[in-house]
């Protein structure tokens, strides 16, 4: 791959090409923006329903809950920008047998398949998410210290990598199950649970969302870190889970490729 600089240059090439291709559609931009704003308004409205009678949501104040919603929106935007287009293309590659071409390129295949395409239409979501997080943190009145902010950033990156690993492993199963794309819809639908802090759920679901489907590490733990209310074990567990998931996605890909028999038709 020619080291990190080579990889960065390659990414720049990929992304400028896919951006140019997408910018053709002006209507798309308007629709996506409207859709992000509409979803934001709706989510804020639903969240406000839980605070109508002055109650908190699982021990989280309105402003703190905003941070969770912000992180969810950010990760969802990231999903639309990178995960969905790239891993959708991976499934298509396997179906059409064009994965052959990718595997024959002198670039790491997981890298190529995961970051080849960038879709600008998730970026409004990313921006809105960042704004929500900032507003929530400032209004909650517990602005993080500089080291605290750095730690929160690390935890957020870890959460993104965890999300990526989940998507990648699911998409990689297309090597065996050709029509796996619906499974990613299930993943996306269940991750909606991350809109609310994990403590808002009944005990049974809390266990499910922590140990089976790690929603807790995607939004709640990063939000806690950002708000300075995270416990050290939770942060450590978050980093550990992300690291393990990333490693597992790598091993899984190597394992899956052993079963790849390029499609004949």
């Amino acid at each position: 791959m020619g080291g990190p600089r080579g990889a960065a240059r390659l990414l720049l090439r990929f992304w400028s090409a896919s951006l140019a291709a997408e910018m053709e559609y002006g209507v798309n931009a308007a629709v996506e923006l409207l859709s992000v704003l509409g979803n934001l308004a709706g989510s804020l409205f639903v969240l406000s329903l839980f605070f109508r009678h002055g109650h908190d949501l699982g021990g989280w104040s309105w402003d703190q809950a905003l941070v969770v919603l912000g992180i969810y929106t950010l990760l969802d935007g990231l999903t639309s920008t990178l995960l969905q287009p790239n891993l959708g293309a991976l499934v298509t590659h396997v179906q059409k047998g064009t994965l052959d071409f990718v595997l024959l390129k002198p670039v790491d295949s997981q890298f190529w398949l995961s970051l080849r395409i960038v879709s600008p239409w998730g970026l409004p979501g990313v921006a809105v998410g960042l704004v929500l997080m900032a507003v929530g943190v400032v209004r909650a009145g517990t602005p993080p210290s500089l080291p605290g902010l750095a730690l929160a950033l690390v935890v957020l990156v870890a959460a993104s990598l965890l999300l990526y690993s989940l998507w990648f492993v699911l998409a990689a199963t297309s090597i065996w199950f050709v029509k796996v794309w619906n499974a990613t819809e299930v993943l996306r639908a269940t991750l909606v649970a991350g809109r609310y802090p994990i403590s808002a759920y009944p005990a049974g679901l809390r266990v499910l969302f922590t140990f089976v489907l790690p929603v807790a590490f995607l939004t709640t733990v990063p939000a806690e870190t950002l708000l300075g209310k995270a416990s050290a074990p939770a942060v450590l567990a978050g980093l550990l889970v992300a690291g393990l998931a990333l490693g597992a996605s790598r091993l899984f890909w190597i394992f899956a490729l052993r079963f790849y028999t390029s499609a004949s038709s």
Binding site: H55, D56, E185, A189, A193, Y201
Partner: peptide, 25 residues
């Protein structure tokens, strides 16, 4: 696929979780 589509309609069940939490408190 249809089973997966059906599973991706879990939103009301997730919302049930949050609303029961709110009701409990």
């Amino acid at each position: 696929e249809i089973v997966l589509w059906a599973l991706s309609g879990v939103l009301p069940l997730i919302m049930l979780g949050v609303w029961s939490g709110a009701e409990a408190s």
